[in-house]
Design a protein around this nucleic acid. Structure first.
Lengths: 246, 246
DNA sequence: TATTAGATTTGATCTGCATCAAAGACGATA
DNA sequence: TATCGTCTTTGATGCAGATCAAATCTAATA
């Protein structure tokens, strides 16, 4: 199927083509998906689902940024996933929620009711194939992140996080890898510290250290420009071309 | 299909029923799997596959323990997965290896040639379903581990690792949760430190601290007895019944 | 039984990040 | 444009775990 045709078939109402469910849809399947989909919006800071609850849908992120995180009884929390537009939310085949899902900016989800979605999975083997590939990508990303959490210094952690976000934004905007990347940080210092296993003070200090050393530029407190992606990646301690998947 | 029948159908030559590929096989599919499978053994310390290589098979662990790990250029390494008997190895649909796979004890794998296995996936939707569920479990485990790496103290990390291993052994041996669990540690102190993002000295100190406090008993240096699983779980900082998946 | 190499323990010291505390900066609202 | 609340920065101090160094232990081999 030509790329152009695929693009036309992007889930009709969203601006984006969902990575999960539309990669090989034909018109027939698209119609079936259309029948069970609906949109929900969440405001900045709002909870999408909490650990222990049931979630009666799976979804694609259309707009905004959501986070997955786990919290210990004493309040220590660790972010385990960062969801950008086109990312998939939910665990097909299981309705229990095992991490808190939260909107860190205003978020629009394109939801699919769980029951009919799972019926569609049974009828549509390539949808399951697709979900398997997505899940493998998420697993790779989670394991890359284990290296960050377990072995990297605070400075390397910050550089890793900025590199991930920069790379994702570049992909979403279809920039070439050599372009300077510029973006608004979708996370507070505290949210970053939850992702990196640090305190917010350390995050603040390291961001400003990277700025002082010319690795990043800061316009205001949230807008970041990466003049040389290569340099940022080196600061992150990755081999020059090695790349995170998510 | 009755459970008894399923059990008989465990992949004929291995003692175990592979979690990945045999959970719902009928005779016909089992024959197809039999045709493409073969056994390989690896000795303690031997490399099964290295990052950057191609792997022309996927496999089930039949015996022994294997590890997945990532190494930075300067030698820092982080273990990202621990594979016990019945665990699945490999990334269906992709032949690139993205973490080193190593045998920490003598290991027997039941391998399936990649090409025919992937053809079988196309013909056998429930196999893909099964792989998706396995991958979701691995993802949950990886994310649980992110919490361990990012937020737990050295003592909690050790307790978490011991709890995971104890729980897996209990499952493999079909012990009831209340039984005292006893097992040989399949990892050196150094391997444990690679899993936990610590140094081997800290691992040693914390293990002996847990022993001194009666949380575990040590017979020799490698044999562990957990008199009260509940206690160990509390030391790990988890809610009493919360459980790791892997 | 002696030898040796790897695994483990133990001790002393150092350091990166956490913790505690307080002072800006900024945007929203009145 | 004044005020409030949230986010961020900055500084001083403390500590968990790293690092460096050297004993032990253990099991395999001669």
């Amino acid at each position: 199927m030509p790329a152009e045709k695929l693009k036309q078939m992007a889930c009709s109402d969203c601006q984006i083509r969902h990575r999960a469910v539309c990669s090989r849809c034909d018109d027939d399947e698209l119609q079936k998906l259309d029948k069970i989909k609906y949109y929900r919006t969440f405001q900045t800071g709002q909870t999408i689902a909490l650990t222990g609850q049931k979630m009666d849908f799976v979804a694609s992120v259309v707009n905004g940024i959501a986070t997955l995180s786990q919290t210990m009884e004493d309040g220590r929390t660790q972010m385990v996933g960062l969801l950008l537009p086109s990312d998939f939310v939910g665990r097909p085949g299981r309705d229990g929620v095992v991490y808190d899902v939260q909107a860190t900016t205003d978020v629009t989800l394109c939801c699919f009711q769980r029951k009919p979605f799972e019926e569609l999975m049974v009828q549509t083997p390539h949808l399951v194939q697709r979900l398997l590939q997505i899940t493998l990508d998420e697993l790779d990303a989670a394991r890359e992140w284990m290296l960050v959490l377990g072995r990297k210094t605070a400075r390397e952690k910050l550089a890793s996080l900025l590199a991930i976000i920069a790379r994702r934004y570049a992909t979403l905007r279809k920039l070439s890898p050599s372009d300077a990347i510029e973006f608004d940080l979708p996370l507070t210092r505290e949210a970053m510290s939850d992702y990196l296993g640090l305190t917010l003070e350390t995050v603040s200090r390291q961001i400003n250290a990277l700025k002082k050393d010319g690795v990043i530029e800061l316009i205001g407190k949230r807008h970041v420009r990466v003049p040389d992606m290569q340099l940022l990646v080196i600061e992150a301690g990755d081999d020059a071309d090695g790349g995170f998947i998510t």
